[in-house]
Amino acid sequence: MIKARVAEAPAGWKQLSVIRFTALGALVIGALVSLPFWGGPGVMRMMVEFLTLLALAQLWNLLAGYTGLVSIGQQAWIGIGGYALIVAADDLGLPIPLGLVLGGVTAALLALPAAGLLFRLRGGYFSVGTWVVAEILRLLVTNSTDWLRGGLGRTLAATGAMARETRELLTYALAVVIGLGVVALVHLLMRSRTGLALTAIRDSETAAANLGVETQRIKLFVYLLCAFGTGVVGALIYLNLLRITPDAAFSVQWTAFMIFIVIIGGIGTIEGPIIGAILFFILRQFLADFGEWSLILLGAVAVVMMIFAPEGIWGIIRRRWQFEIFPVHRRIGAGSDNAHAA
């Protein structure tokens, strides 16, 4: 006998009122929009990096934290997005914003056949499979010695004609749109019926399937959506960096950043990746040479948190003060697995 109890957001938990939530949102948006008027180009550059990390982490969290698809190959779509932007802007002469969209579209188009194969793999083998896909794309790009200039990589030339200020402003504006857009997207998605279905799938795929949730279709949708989003962010990253090489663009380090940010901040929440990204960013500013030690430190912190506090920093805060900012938290009552009390 299965006793599953569905609880709405835990009773008695404080949530921000609509007015305060809107005020907080307006404050953040206001600060970001006005930043070019009071912050210098250095601050803008920093914010671009922060917003890209935030968007990447949110997307990985949507994929793994909310959908249970633990990809360690998201760098595939960063590389594809970056290269697509350069091809779109330099080879096809398309405007930059369109290049970003094309980065996402190309990633999603490649993710579709990849998903057809990857979704045949269970659990951990799915994860390794996503890595193989990223490796194949890296090798294909590396082998394209003429068009994509192989391992040497390419440089975005289209922005060369722009004034530096214009380029920086454009990059910043796009980063704000994408960073806030991804947070809003995940928030709205998780409040929708799809979000409820996702929570059901994560908690028990079999149960969700029995309830008529079309698990495969929803997982595919999220996988493609995240490939698209990560592709767009990848294009943004290389709009900012200008120079791309396959080894850097398809490096698993990108996914390591996403994973560490999400685990440390709090997996399966929207607030978690925000906190994680802020901490990660602060660490990065302090350790000027962001080398091996910082990755060892981050990895160790993530491993320890996974063991002792798998809910992350936000999870601890949320439980301690029974509080949440983004009201998307829903729980399916525990004890549905082995609660067949005779």
Partner: peptide
């Protein structure tokens, strides 16, 4: 000897 045990599955008391 089983002495006045209380057993739970999560929040559910069995």
């Amino acid at each position: 000897v089983v002495d006045s045990i209380e057993v739970f599955y999560g929040e559910f008391q069995a």
